[in-house]
């Protein structure tokens, strides 16, 4: 059973057990344009909610990816290093960035659900 939440910085986070997967939303991927490079966090790195965790670059822009919730990095999607286009093709699936072991599940619960995020994007 998994549950997906969203941030106002356009990251998504999917919780399965105590491990969460993080990526950028379809909306973010479309506004970035063709992704040409991603920089992933090293394993075992500790991140805090809202802290810089990864970088995504298109031809003309570089954006930081923030950790939606605090925790320890348990995996990084190294396939993106060779094929950054996956971020555009399947941002909320194969284009995931990293996985976290959450420090505090409460942080996850505070994030927007799909309906709230859809409303948030509509308002932009």
């Amino acid at each position: 059973m998994s549950e997906v939440r969203y941030t106002d910085q356009h990251e998504w986070i999917r919780l399965e057990g105590d491990e969460a997967t993080v990526g950028i939303t379809k909306y973010a991927a479309e506004s970035l344009g063709d992704v040409v490079f991603v920089e992933l966090p090293p394993l075992a790195k500790t991140v805090t909610a809202g802290g810089e965790a990864a970088v995504v670059e298109s031809v003309k822009a570089a954006s930081d990816i923030y950790a939606p919730a605090g925790g320890t990095v348990t995996a990084a999607n190294s396939a993106l290093e060779k094929e950054p286009s996956k971020v555009n093709e399947d941002p909320e699936g194969a284009g995931w960035f990293f996985k976290l072991k959450l420090a505090d599940a409460g942080e996850f619960a505070k994030l927007m659900d799909a309906a709230a995020y859809a409303k948030f994007v509509e308002g932009l």
């Binding site: 040409v36 670059e57 298109s58 003309k60 570089a62």
Partner: peptide, 13 residues
């Protein structure tokens, strides 16, 4: 190319 390393895009980074 790879201009995202440069000042006009990355600014203070």
């Amino acid at each position: 190319t790879l201009s995202t390393r440069e000042q006009h895009i990355r600014r203070e980074k």
